[in-house]
Structures are given as C-alpha cells and as structure tokens.
C-alpha cells in the first residue's frame, strides 16, 4: 500500500518538477564546480589567468546545466549525467598533483 503510494507520488508531475529543479541547482552547481576545477588545470595559460578565466565561465556552465535539467527527456538521467560528468572532471583536475599547481 505505502510503497504504491510513494511510487505514485514519485511519478507525479510535481515530484518531477522538484527533481528537475533540484538537479538544476545542486547537480548543476557540481558540474560548474567540476568544470571550473578542470579548466583551472588544463587551460593553456599561466596559473592566475587559468583560474580567473575558468571561474568566470562557471556561471555559463551552471546555466547550461539548468537548461539541460529541464530539457532532458528523463528526469532521473539528469542526475546521473550531471553528477558523473562533474565527478570525472574533478578527478581529471585533482589527479595530477604537481602539474595542477604549475605556475
């Protein structure tokens, strides 16, 4: 009974709206975070310029992620894609310990 009730609630348009909205906010921020970290390391510029350019671009990434959160067909997939991408970007940014802090 209860399980069925929850399933129905989870499939309701309101739940989908909230899921997409939270994905846009939270997962979108995570992606922006990952992208900023990645670009702060891999942009072919001196360190202070890399960091500033990457940081200034982060809002564009966030807004792009928000648009994707609502445009994607399946609401759950949004979470998977955004979080996985953010994780991959962060890994790529943090793994080269010495190189990421090169001047």
């Amino acid at each position: 009974m209860a399980a069925q009730h929850w399933r129905r609630l989870a499939a309701s348009p309101l739940a989908e709206l909230i899921s997409r909205g939270l994905a846009a906010l939270v997962a979108g921020y995570l992606l922006a975070f990952g992208a900023t970290a990645f670009l702060s390391v891999y942009l072919p510029l001196p360190r202070p310029d890399r960091v500033v350019v990457a940081s200034l671009l982060c809002f564009a990434v966030w807004v792009g992620a928000a648009v994707y959160s609502f445009a994607a067909r399946r609401p759950l997939r949004v979470w998977v894609v955004l979080v996985a991408l953010a994780g991959a970007l962060c890994l790529a940014a943090w793994l080269p310990t010495d190189w990421r802090m090169r001047p």
Partner: peptide, 17 residues
C-alpha cells in the same frame, strides 16, 4: 554574480592553489 565568484566558486583556488 561574477563579482563574488571567488566566494561562490572556490574550485579554481582549491585545485590550482
């Protein structure tokens, strides 16, 4: 939003510094 970007998005400082 860019004015306080260093507070909103600390990723660059975390990874490169």
């Amino acid at each position: 939003v860019a004015i306080f970007v260093a507070a909103y998005m600390p990723a660059g400082g975390m990874v490169a510094y």
